[in-house]
């Protein structure tokens, strides 16, 4: 992960509608030699808990439509969220950061997180990465 362009995304939501764009951009970026640095903070951290990606739902009242949406995603041959994460890891173009403050606020322990998490960091560490990035997004 040296000469690649860099994308920094703050992942603020752990719901299906927000996580899909995150992982689609990360995997498309990986294919284009763009490294994706994802900072999971606040409700985004839910996605990094074991089973979080598998069980992500649509937000609010749309929650009841999650099954239908997942059906459509499957029908369109779009991979599941864990499969997209695997693709990115396989390409070696993704870095997953868990927000340390959120872990305290939400009472999440390190052993509750999926092993794909690269580092537990604070805002300053992520800002340093984001300042050097070519694309910065908040999703």
């Amino acid at each position: 992960m040296t000469e690649n362009k860099k994308m920094a995304i703050i992942v603020h939501s752990g719901t299906l509608d927000k996580l899909y764009p995150v992982f689609m951009l990360a995997s498309a970026g990986g294919a284009m030699d763009v490294d994706a640095h994802l900072f999971f903070t606040f409700w985004g951290l839910d996605a990094l808990k074991k089973g979080g990606l598998e069980n992500a739902k649509l937000p609010g009242v749309m929650r009841v439509g999650t099954g239908m949406m997942k059906g459509r995603i499957k029908d369109a041959n779009v991979p599941t969220l864990p499969a997209l994460l695997d693709l990115c890891k396989e390409m070696g173009t993704i870095k997953i950061y868990a927000c340390s403050t959120t872990m305290e606020l939400m009472k999440v322990k390190e052993e509750e997180l999926i092993p794909e998490v690269d580092e537990i960091v604070g805002a300053a560490a992520f800002l340093e990465i984001a300042m050097d990035a070519d694309v910065q997004l908040f999703i």
Partner: peptide, 13 residues
């Protein structure tokens, strides 16, 4: 055929 973004470029990569 039948695959949508980002899969075609991921597969090509």
């Amino acid at each position: 055929k039948g695959l949508y973004c980002p899969m075609p470029i991921v597969k090509m990569k």
